[in-house]
């Protein structure tokens, strides 16, 4: 698309003039290149800000209304107490019940507009569908806050803990996840976010994701599928994918292929929340494991590993320790 052509298209989009074909072609253009997305965001921001600054001169609407209000003003039921005195006590009682109902309904309606939803996966992993149809899988212990419906122009959620996201693609309304460490913006994709105490880890399964740190939003990083990055102390850094088991809490499956024991232990701990450890002096690098566990209990997994490695397990308080006999 030529420079002018896409500005024309974006302007049409912002002016709500686009047909569905034009929307589709805009979406395609946006997904083609992260730079396109940036251009789009810049233009949309000019648009939004201009709408704001042009009407910021204050005028006293109430005073003006007093000046031009047509006369005679209509009789106001609320303002005159006289008719009520003529009514029977029963009618008054009925009216006050009705009034109370109206207030309740009004309150419900008002708060229903953009109530803050808070979901905490307390007992187990939990799947939920957001107001726009996007899907989220919360790992047990994770929490998500969002407005229902989403605020205009932006789909934003606040995450604590670990979750897998499958957002509906909508170039006009970015899907953004905030954590205490930064923001993660989806560019049409599925991805996993681990918000830990010290840092965030983001794994991109398909598509692209943009990361920004909490402190400095000009610092950003775009990740493509198969890439992983961490947000740590306001630093963004690409990192090794590490384990293939980061989704095990969602899939229920743990898979090891010639995986060193220390990584196996780490994945098992991550999956089961167990406190498994390796006795000092064991040559973990040399002990490699190939196995697949599907929805199995910790005991079954450990038995299998004992069998494969010839190691034993001893218990010290809450910790399980792999030892050589």
């Amino acid at each position: 698309m030529e420079e002018n052509e896409h500005i024309r298209l974006i302007t049409r989009h912002l002016s709500r003039e686009t047909s569905s074909e034009e929307e589709a072609s805009l979406r395609q253009w946006l997904e083609g290149d992260p730079a396109h997305r940036q251009q789009f965001d810049a233009l949309r921001n000019v648009w939004d800000t201009s709408g704001d600054v042009i009407r910021d001169m204050p005028f006293d609407t109430a005073a003006a209304w007093e000046k031009i209000a047509p006369s005679p003003p209509p009789p106001s039921v609320r303002r005159s107490p006289t008719p009520l005195r003529l009514l029977s006590p029963r009618l008054v009682a009925a009216a006050s019940v009705l009034l109370a109902l109206c207030i309740a309904a009004g309150w419900y309606y008002l708060t229903r507009q953009h109530p803050l939803q808070q979901v905490i996966a307390a007992a187990d992993n939990q799947q939920l569908t957001l107001p726009d149809g996007s899907k989220v899988w919360l790992r047990k212990g994770a929490g998500l806050k969002y407005q229902d419906p989403f605020n205009k122009g932006l789909r934003e959620v606040q995450l604590t803990g670990e979750a897998f996201f499958q957002p509906i693609s909508d170039p006009a309304r970015p899907f953004r996840i905030r954590t205490i460490h930064g923001a993660i913006e989806d560019i049409g994709t599925t991805f996993l976010v681990r918000d830990r105490d010290s840092m965030d880890e983001v794994f991109v399964i398909t598509g692209k994701v943009k990361l920004t740190t909490g402190e400095d939003p000009s610092q950003s990083l775009v990740l493509s599928s198969g890439q992983k990055a961490t947000i740590l102390k306001n630093k963004l850094s690409p990192s090794d994918w590490g384990t293939p088991n980061m989704m095990s809490w969602k899939t229920g499956a743990l898979e090891f292929r010639q995986t060193p024991l220390d990584q196996v232990v780490q994945d098992i701990n991550d999956h089961f929340g167990s406190q498994l450890n390796i006795a000092p002096g064991l040559e973990v690098e040399k002990i490699k494991i190939t196995a697949r566990f599907d929805h199995q209990h910790l005991d079954q997994v450990l038995d299998e590993i004992k069998l494969l490695t010839g190691l034993h397990i001893i218990r010290i308080k809450d910790t399980l320790l792999f030892v050589r006999q």
Binding site: N4, I7, R8, I10, T11, R12, L14, S15, E17, D41, A42, L43, N45, V46, W47, T49, S50, T212, P217, S218
Partner: peptide, 29 residues
């Protein structure tokens, strides 16, 4: 349509020329 497109294009160039092309991100944030 032409004037609307032109307006956005000119405004963006103006902001770019004045070095605030990236400042919007910070503002937003």
């Amino acid at each position: 349509e032409n004037q609307m497109t032109k307006a956005l294009k000119l405004m963006r160039s103006f902001l770019k020329d004045h070095g605030v092309y990236l400042a919007w991100a910070l503002t937003n944030f």
